[in-house]
Every structure is written in C-alpha cells, then in structure tokens.
Design a protein around this nucleic acid. Structure first.
Lengths: 102, 102
DNA sequence: TTGATAGGCAAGTAGTTACTTGCCTATCCT
DNA sequence: AGGATAGGCAAGTAACTACTTGCCTATCAA
C-alpha cells in the first residue's frame, strides 16, 4: 500500500486524532469551525495555520476529504483507510502458535 | 484510553510495522531472530539495539508481549489493541450529514 | 572456569515534525 | 469600491525520535 506511511503518520499526532473525533461528531466542517471546537471543547491553544497543516496531513492520508464552495472549504471524514490497519495484522492461524528456541 | 498515544506512536514507524508483520508470520521470536529477518527479508540495516528499542515501544503499546525463558526472551504479537482504532471513529449516524455555512 | 550467546543500559547525534509568525489571495456583503 | 471573512504560502524554531556506539550483566556449553 502506497499510503500506509501517510496513514499511520497522520494518526500519530493527538491533535489530529482529536480533529477526527470532531469530524466524527459532525462531518463537513470548515477550518474555522474546527479551530473553534478545538479551542472551546478541548482547550487546545493552536493557531489556525497549525490546524490547517494538520488537516493537510489528514487529507494526504485519505482520512479527510475536502470540497470547496465559494470561500468555504468543507472537511469530510473518511474512515475507509482505517480498515487496512486491522486487516494487515490478522493472526493467520489458530492461537497457540508458540515457538521453541532457535 | 490511557495507552492510545503509545499505540499510535508505535504504529507510526515503518520498521515497527515490519516487525509486526514478521511477528504475524511467526509469533514468539527472539530479538536476534527478528534482527536477522529484518536484515534478510527486508534489507533493513539496523543495529540490534535499534530493534530492541523498537520492541520496547511495541511492548509499551501492548502490541507485543514478552516472556523470558533462560537467556531467551520471546516476543509474542497481540493484535487486541488495534481494535480500538476502528472502534473510535465509527460514523455515528446515517450518511448524508452534510452541513451549510456557519 | 572460560568462552560464546542473548540481551540491557546510557549517552550522543542527525533528521524529522509540530507550531508560530508574517504576509498574500479569493470570496462575499454592504 | 471597501471592508470583512475564509483560507493559503513560506520560513524559522523548538522539541522529539530513530539510530548508533560502547560497555555491562546473565545464561549456557565445553
């Protein structure tokens, strides 16, 4: 998978995970709306540009999709890329696959 | 969740994800076995100590569990913590929750 | 006991990343 | 037009992280 690195890097930051939380609660928010939510609900003192950069990382990971309408840019959540995480490390066999010394 | 940060930080590194791949293929490997697999199969030129530090991070995230037997330390995969990732960002309602300008 | 194997601890370094500040463009509403 | 709103670009900084090197401890086999 080409975007695996982008995906995991995007999830590595706690502020970005909070942004995903907020977009889960209400998808289609603008940058300013996300900014005010982070400030109000989560006491995150972060600049608008900081949030914008986080959103760019999330978009590169495919977790956020954007659409422009006039001067507004709406951010929508896309949880589809998360599936590859659990699919990647499925235990192949039955439990009890212990090993002896090499 | 207390370990959420540890979990996502652990998954953020590509070498650690490869280690999880190898432990998926064969659980219960020693440090040296993991080292040689990373070197042979993935051409990763990384020191033993580097791998050891990666395993410590994975263990802090709960993704790897260890057991000692004599001078050997076996590393077992535990994929249970991965579940909270997909469970966290489930879309709550039906699709079509679009928004107008604020 | 001696040597080899398996692993741990600690400090230093180079590269990455999150964040800010300053300035600029585009759209909308009187 | 003019001001306000929404957002973008770029450079600089401070903190973090992956990695190495050097040395040390513990277990096993001869």
């Amino acid at each position: 998978m080409v975007v695996a690195d982008d995906l995991f890097k995007a999830l590595a930051d706690p502020t970005r995970r909070t942004i995903l939380d907020e977009l889960t609660e209400k998808s289609g928010q603008t940058l300013f709306e996300i900014c005010s939510r982070l400030s109000m609900k989560h006491q995150l003192r972060i600049s608008r540009q900081g949030v914008s950069q986080h959103l760019a990382v999330l978009e590169a990971a495919g977790l956020v999709e954007t659409r422009r309408e006039g001067r507004y840019k709406f951010h929508d959540l896309n949880t589809a890329p998360l599936r590859q995480i659990t699919e990647r490390w499925l235990v192949p066999d039955a439990p009890g696959a212990q090993e002896s010394a090499p």
